[in-house]
Amino acid sequence: MEPLLDRITVDPTICHGKPTIRGSRLMVATILELLSAGMTHEELIADYPTLQEEDIRSCLVYATRLANFQFVPYNKAA
């Protein structure tokens, strides 16, 4: 699963630092929104010719990692 995450980049100078597909300005959030709206992988690739199946899967892996993130509250000592 890790090699798929290499396809996701975060650069503060591109898309305000939002996660994007490597080598593009296509944001991970955009892919996830389109998938959740019901677009198929085939439709996404047809609409974005530079997009590859592995890019779509990398977005799903990224989202899974975020969903599994656990916030640990920090209590500042008095």
Score class of each variant (00 low, 15 high):
Pro12Ala: 09
Thr64Phe: 02
Val72Gln: 09
Glu43Leu: 11
Leu44Asp: 03
Thr50His: 15
Asp6Thr: 08
Thr50Asn: 15
Asn68Pro: 00
Glu2Cys: 09
Gly23Gln: 01
Glu53Asp: 13
Thr9Phe: 00
Val28Gly: 01
Thr13Pro: 00
Glu54Met: 15
Ala63Cys: 07
Asp47Pro: 03
Asn68Tyr: 02
Asn68Glu: 10
Glu54Asp: 15
Ile45Thr: 05
Leu34Lys: 05
Leu26Val: 08
Tyr62Arg: 07
Ala67Tyr: 00
Val28Glu: 00
Ser24Val: 07
Lys18His: 09
Pro73Tyr: 13
Val72Ser: 11
Ser36Met: 13
Glu43Asp: 11
Asn75Thr: 09
Cys59Tyr: 06
Leu4Thr: 10
Arg22Pro: 00
Cys15Leu: 02
Glu54Gln: 15
Pro3Gly: 05
Glu2Val: 14
Lys18Arg: 14
Gly17Ala: 07
Thr20Ser: 05
Met27Ala: 10
Arg57Met: 13
Met39Cys: 10
Thr50Tyr: 14
Lys18Trp: 04
Lys18Ala: 14
Cys59His: 05
Gln70Lys: 11
Ile56Phe: 07
Arg7Tyr: 00
Cys15Phe: 01
Asp11Gln: 09
Ser24Ala: 07
Cys15His: 00
Leu34Val: 03
Thr30Arg: 02
Asp47Asn: 11
Met27Pro: 00
Arg7Phe: 00
Asp11Lys: 04
Ala46Gln: 08
Asp47Arg: 09
Gln70Val: 10
Gly23Lys: 09
Pro19Trp: 04
Leu66Val: 09
Cys59Met: 10
Thr50Met: 15
Ile14Pro: 00
Arg7Lys: 05
Thr30Trp: 02
Pro73Thr: 13
Pro49Glu: 04
Leu34Gln: 07
Val28Tyr: 03
Arg22Asn: 11
Ile14Asn: 02
Ala37Phe: 06
Glu2Phe: 13
Leu35Trp: 04
Glu43Ala: 10
Glu42Cys: 08
Thr50Gln: 15
Asp6Arg: 12
Tyr48Cys: 04
Lys18Ser: 13
Ala78Asp: 13
His16Gln: 11
Val72Trp: 05
Ala29Glu: 09
His41Arg: 13
Pro49Val: 03
Lys76Arg: 15
Thr13Gln: 10
Ala78Ile: 05
Arg57Pro: 05
Ala37Leu: 13
Phe69Asn: 10
Asp55Tyr: 05
Glu33Gln: 02
Asp55Val: 07
Ala78Glu: 14
Glu2Gln: 12
Tyr74Phe: 15
Val28Trp: 02
Met27Tyr: 01
Leu32Ser: 07
Ile21Val: 07
Glu53Ala: 15
Arg7Ile: 08
Ala78Cys: 08
Thr13Ser: 12
Thr40Ile: 12
Leu34Asp: 08
Ile21Met: 04
Ile45Gln: 09
Met1Cys: 05
Gly23Trp: 01
Leu32Val: 11
Met39Gly: 01
Pro49Leu: 08
Asp11Met: 04
Leu51His: 12
Pro3Val: 06
Thr64Arg: 09
Tyr48Gly: 03
Cys15Arg: 12
Ala78Met: 08
Ala77Ser: 15
Thr9Leu: 09
Ala46Trp: 05
Lys76Asp: 15
Leu5Phe: 03
Gln70Leu: 02
Val28Pro: 03
Gly23Met: 07
Leu4Cys: 06
Glu42Asp: 11
Gly17Arg: 04
Arg57Val: 12
Ile14Thr: 11
Val28Met: 02
